[in-house]
Each structure stands twice: as C-alpha cells, then as structure tokens.
Amino acid sequence: MKRKMLVWYGELTTTRSLIKRGLLFLSPGMLWLLAFLVLPGLVLVVVSFASRGAYGELVWEFNLENYKRLAGFGIFGWSADYLVIVWRSVWVALVTTVLSVVLSYPLCFFIARRPERTRYLWLTMVIIPFWTNMVIRTYAWFLILAPELPFARLAAMLGLVSPGSPLYPSAFAVYLGMVSMFLPFVALPLYSSVERLDWELVEAAQDLYASRLRVFTQAILPQTLPGLSVGVILTFVPAMGMFVVPDLLGGAKYMLVGNLIQQQFGASRDWAFGAAISMGLMVLTMFSLYLYRRKSKGAEVLV
C-alpha cells in the first residue's frame, strides 16, 4: 500500500494539490515572461527571415537575404562592412574586459587591505558608478574630453589632434567610456573572491622565491577565479551589445553591433535586418555563455 498523502514543509497534503497550488504561484510570473520575453524572442527569430517593404513595413516573404546581407553579400557584390562591425564589437568587448580585469586586481587588493571601517566606504565608491545611469557616465566623458580641458590640450600639444578639437569621436574615447562603464562589473564580483583570499598561500609562494608572475598564476588566480569568471561574463556579453558609449563617443567612424541594430530600428526602419543582426549578437552571446559554463562547471554564480 502506497499512501497518497505526503508532508511538505510540515503540511499534510497531496502531490496533486501541491502541483495545482505551485502552478498557481508560477503562472503570473511565467506567463508574463513567456508573453513579453520568450514569445517576442521567437517572433524576432521569425522576423529575421522576413523582408523589408518599400516603406519600411514588414513583408512576410521568408528568405535568407538578411543573413546574407550581414555576411556581406549585397547588391553591389561582397563587402566586409558589416562583418567588420561585428568583429570590432567582439574586439572592443575583449579589450574592455581585459583592461577592466587588469585595473580591477590592484583595486580589489587595495580595498581588501583597508581596515574594516574604511573598507565598506571604498567598496561603496565602486558600487556607486555601477548603479549610475550609463548615459550620464558616458556624457561625463563627453565633457572631460572637451577641447577646453587639459586632456585635449595636452593631446593637441603633442600633435595627436588638431588644436581646439575634442578627443571624441574616436576609438580612444570609446575605450575610455567602455572601460569606465564595465570596470565595476568586474571589480565587484572579483572583490568577493579577493576578500576570501587565503593570504598565507600567497605568502608561502612568495617565501618560495616564486617570481611575481608565478605568485599570481599559481596562488592568486586559482583562488580568485570564481569571482573573476563572473566579472568577465558580466562584462564581455553586455559590452558586445553596447550602444550608448559608441553612439556618443565613437560616432559613425567607430560603429558597433549595438549601433547597427539601433539604426535598423531607428533611421533605416529595416526591422527584418535588425532582427537578423540581433540573432547574430545572440549567437555570439550564447557562444560566450557556453564557453563560460564549460570553464566553470556547475558554478551558480550569476547574480
């Protein structure tokens, strides 16, 4: 004889009524996510195979034209323009991530070694930019790179830019903006690992006269890897899709995938092509996540 009743969190009930109640709890949130996240996502996939009408409307004729166009096959023959933008996005995201990591390590070590009282103050100083609106932070660079201020004047003196012109739009400005935007995304998860670092292990490595590089790769890196990998994924993925920073600081010369997508939904009014580019970005995202999951198996560390 197998009983139908079971005890769940101290309550005597049946599997049937538990499942019923559970579905009741799940449905509002899940239906919302299905309606406004999963379904639109699927629609986006479908639209990426559709075509643009003469007035920017969607035409339900399905073909691979948008993807071909993304790969560079246009009416005037092959051009690498779009692929260059895609590649540039990956490259910018990569450089941003590397620079953020390089700057985050000293910062985290510094904060971890402050006395307890001031440590939280320093940490809050990193959290504040994390939560400050990205338009404001980008615009702040706009301001500081203005021709009247010392940075642009110095560059003009060195002959890098013509006198009286700002340091934007330029690749340099994009990198500045991107790194300052994403540095806290690396620093905060990394700090949680650095805080728990076993310094005795590091000192033991130093005592063994290991070179600085070896101390880092053998003693510090393995211990901080959990936080580092979260930081890297939190930076790399959104950096690929960034569009505010390149829009304001890069201009037309330094376009990234994010701007390209925005352009299709804005001025160009070519939703189908925009959807196809979004799919391209999605593939890059999934690939990065796949690499991340393989590197840190079973680590439930996102958020």
Binding site: K2, R3, M5, L6, V7, G10, E11, L12
Partner: peptide, 19 residues
C-alpha cells in the same frame, strides 16, 4: 509520511493526522 505502517499515540491512530 510513512509509505507503510501506523503511528499510535495513547492507543489512537494518528498516522493520517497533520503535525
């Protein structure tokens, strides 16, 4: 909840009573 068996408290079957 046991798969089989009974719990008696003071001679009364309480197996199917909630906590």
């Amino acid at each position: 909840m046991p798969d089989e068996g009974r719990v008696l408290l003071g001679g009364k079957d309480i197996t199917d009573l909630p906590a």
